[in-house]
Simulated scan of single mutants.
Amino acid sequence: MTEDIKLGVQLVEIDSEFSGQRVDNFLIARLKGVPKSVIYRVLRKGEVRINKKRVKPEYKLQAGDLLRIPPITVRQQNDHVSTQLAVVQQLEQQVLFEDEHLLIINKPSGMAVHGGSGLNFGVIEALRALRPDARHLELVHRLDRDTSGCLMIAKKRSVLRHLHQQLRDKTVEKKYQALVAGDWPSKLRKVTEPLRKNTLQSGERVVRVDAVDGKESETRFRILQRYQQGTLVEAFPVTGRTHQIRVHTACKGHPIACDDKYGDSDFTGQMKALGLSRLFLHAFSLRVLHPVTETTLSIEAPLDQDLARLLTQLQRV
């Protein structure tokens, strides 16, 4: 259900948190439910004013600016995320770290990081419902829907900018645990095959190794435990390509257990027979510089019961 709400003129004093942000991006974030075409139209017509002057979409806000937003109609969703849903309440039990700047959770497998593509809500929408006073919750990075583990959410735009810079500088250390088919070679410590993202006619995203048009990619691996049925490896993605670990393991002949895109049906069948019903890929640890205190955060997310239980059923080598 949706309803149209007509808002009158808004006068907003810009604080330092939004200094440097483009005015069009500020309006898009603030006026959720308003089409971008409408936002750019009122900008083009000069109805948006900064300090009583017309501005272009690329104008960068400054602390102390007085922003005038003209009367506008917002289409608001009525089907808000209920905090009583079990899947939403579960997130409260998955908080690994939280302060006034940053939230880190152990994302459950099977839950998308955001709504869309037929999903009413994801992690970010659920957290916004659970933290109504935290007005600016934003995902710092993403995890595949079927991947569990450490996920960072910024509570302030300045924190988001700082963490994004760390990700660009490759100073954030994210390590994953994956159960792969076969006997992973001891000498295979790095995979650098370039990856290209493709979208099929169905809309499904598939990533392939592509030596010509693929983007530079690197994943480092370390063996954690060998089993008769497979190998538990630690994966450290130096780059952050879509499905990177899943494709890099599969292209070397060692796909991840229960990977429905890149997996091996025989290996997946064996693991399902032992009770595994999800992708065995878990963002186990995260090492990052806190954007405000400048201390190093080292966070670990324990394996969920399904993954831990499966490992107890495998025969060590």
Rank of each mutant, 00 (worst) to 15 (best):
I5M: 08
G8N: 14
Q10F: 09
V12S: 12
V12Y: 10
G20E: 04
G20A: 08
L27A: 04
L27M: 07
L27R: 09
I28E: 05
A29W: 11
K32F: 01
G33D: 01
P35C: 00
K36Y: 04
V42W: 07
G46I: 07
G46A: 11
I50M: 12
I50E: 06
K52R: 13
E58N: 15
L66A: 10
R68F: 14
P70H: 09
P70M: 09
P71E: 02
Q76Y: 10
V81R: 00
L85E: 04
A86W: 11
Q89W: 04
E92S: 13
I104S: 05
I104Y: 04
N106H: 04
P108E: 05
A112Q: 01
A112E: 00
G116A: 01
G116N: 01
L119K: 01
L130K: 02
P132Y: 08
L139K: 02
L143N: 01
S148R: 00
K156I: 09
V159Y: 07
L160Y: 07
H162P: 08
L163W: 11
H164T: 10
Q165K: 12
Q166E: 06
L167A: 03
K170E: 14
K170F: 13
T171W: 13
T171P: 13
V172P: 03
K174P: 07
Y176I: 06
V180P: 01
A181G: 09
G182S: 08
D183V: 11
L188S: 15
L188T: 15
L195P: 00
R196K: 03
V206A: 01
A211L: 12
A211D: 11
E216F: 13
E216I: 07
S217L: 06
F221P: 01
R222N: 14
Q229N: 14
E234C: 08
F236P: 00
P237S: 02
H248E: 02
K252S: 15
G253C: 10
P255K: 05
K261C: 07
Y262F: 06
G263S: 10
D264W: 13
Q270M: 15
L274N: 12
L274Q: 13
F280K: 08
A283P: 05
A283H: 03
L286P: 08
T296C: 04
T296A: 08
S298N: 15
A301G: 07
Q305N: 12
D306N: 09
T312E: 12
T312I: 09
T312V: 13
